[in-house]
């Protein structure tokens, strides 16, 4: 069975390591914060200027001056810090953030990502995504394998205007965990009950399959 969004987040959370500073994008990535493995100390950075983000506030305790990059009201944990936008992107560009998780509309087998623009249709802007993908060493894309029309989002080449070149190393979808290697997409794990053949069929780019492919543990 294909994973739901929470299971995708749960699988990505397995990539967290103790002491990581992590930037989570909007959508499925935000859910990763709900599945931090026990015993790990993780701090979440939000590019609008906060480190040490906590959960949503209790009703009645919302502070309009305290939001995340998705403009949602949040809280902070003890030890949190606020800073201006230039300092925030110094953290990102300067590679002080160990893991970035973001959504995508398309990913290509050479690691290009497109997630900011559909010409003539949706032009909302890139926000911080271009800075994040250009500098982060460790980027995981969280997305559904196919778009709403059922077309694969894992392509030989992106068809939409790209956000960054050769920058994505790992993709976790509802069907599979796929690494992006110098030779292209490589299947690492599959969702429980989803066959390798189904994943190959759902992937427009070339997919390297070597040996037995284990099921994700979510």
């Amino acid at each position: 069975m294909a994973l739901d969004k929470n299971q995708i987040a749960k699988r990505i959370a397995q990539e967290l390591e103790d002491g990581f500073y992590v930037n989570l994008g909007i959508g499925i990535p935000t859910l990763v914060a709900n599945y931090i493995p026990e015993g790990l100390e993780i701090e979440f950075q939000s590019e609008n200027g906060v480190l040490g983000m906590g959960p949503f506030p209790f009703e009645g305790e919302e502070d309009p001056d305290l939001i995340n990059a998705g403009k949602q009201t949040i809280t902070t944990l003890d030890g949190a810090a606020f800073f201006d936008s230039a300092t925030s992107f110094a953290m990102i560009r300067g590679q002080h953030v160990q893991l970035t998780v973001l959504g995508a509309m398309e990913v290509s087998q050479n690691g290009d990502i497109a997630n900011w623009k559909i010409p003539g249709k949706m032009v909302k802007g890139m926000g911080g995504a271009m800075d994040l993908v250009a500098s982060a060493e460790n980027i995981i894309v969280a997305m559904i394998h196919a778009n709403k029309k059922g077309q694969s989002k894992l392509l030989k080449e992106c068809t939409l205007p790209i956000t960054g070149k050769n920058c994505i190393k790992k993709v976790v979808t509802d069907l599979a965990v796929i690494d992006i290697t110098p030779n292209g997409f490589k299947l690492i794990e599959r969702a429980s009950g989803v066959s390798v053949e189904e994943i190959i069929a759902a992937t427009d780019g070339d997919l390297i399959v070597e040996g037995e492919i284990p099921e994700m543990d979510v």
């Binding site: 959960p55 949503f56 506030p57 209790f58 009703e59 919302e62 939001i67 949602q72 009201t73």
Partner: peptide, 12 residues
């Protein structure tokens, strides 16, 4: 006025 764009809360 300090309008909030996305009012997100959790249950007590």
């Amino acid at each position: 006025e300090k309008r909030i764009e996305q009012r997100t809360t959790r249950q007590r």
